[in-house]
């Protein structure tokens, strides 16, 4: 696959490591009442969609950016590539 890195342009997928579902960005609040339950779901439960999927890729053999890809798991078509940091910020993550 070719991943169109927002900064570096098209790069071979071999330069990347895939972590999986981009929901890993949405780490629960450790002080929540039901933190244990939330972390359990965060750690263990994943959707496995046949089709559009948002996933995290790490440009390990490159600039070390974490990216969020919107990829079709059936066709491997990649419709969107974003910097994971921007996605994390837009989802309200801070310090």
């Amino acid at each position: 696959m070719i991943i169109n890195h927002p900064i570096l342009g098209p790069r071979d997928a071999a330069e990347f490591v895939c972590l999986g579902d981009a929901c890993m960005i949405d780490r629960p609040d450790w002080e929540a009442e039901d933190a244990m339950q939330q972390f359990h779901e965060y750690g263990y439960l994943r959707d496995n969609p046949a089709g559009q999927h948002q996933e995290l890729w790490y440009h390990e053999q490159g600039d070390r950016s974490w990216l969020v890809l919107t990829r079709n798991t059936l066709t491997h078509e990649i419709t969107k590539v974003e910097m994971a940091r921007d996605v994390a910020r837009s989802r309200g993550r801070d310090k």
Binding site: V17, L19, M24, I25, R27, L56, Y58, E60, R64, S65, W66, M83, A84, R85, V87, A88, R89, R93, D94, K95
Partner: peptide, 19 residues
Amino acid sequence: AVLVFRRMEFARQCLWPNM
């Protein structure tokens, strides 16, 4: 060595992006 570094970059960029 490689995996810890990867994880720390994940924490820095995806979990606490404004640090």
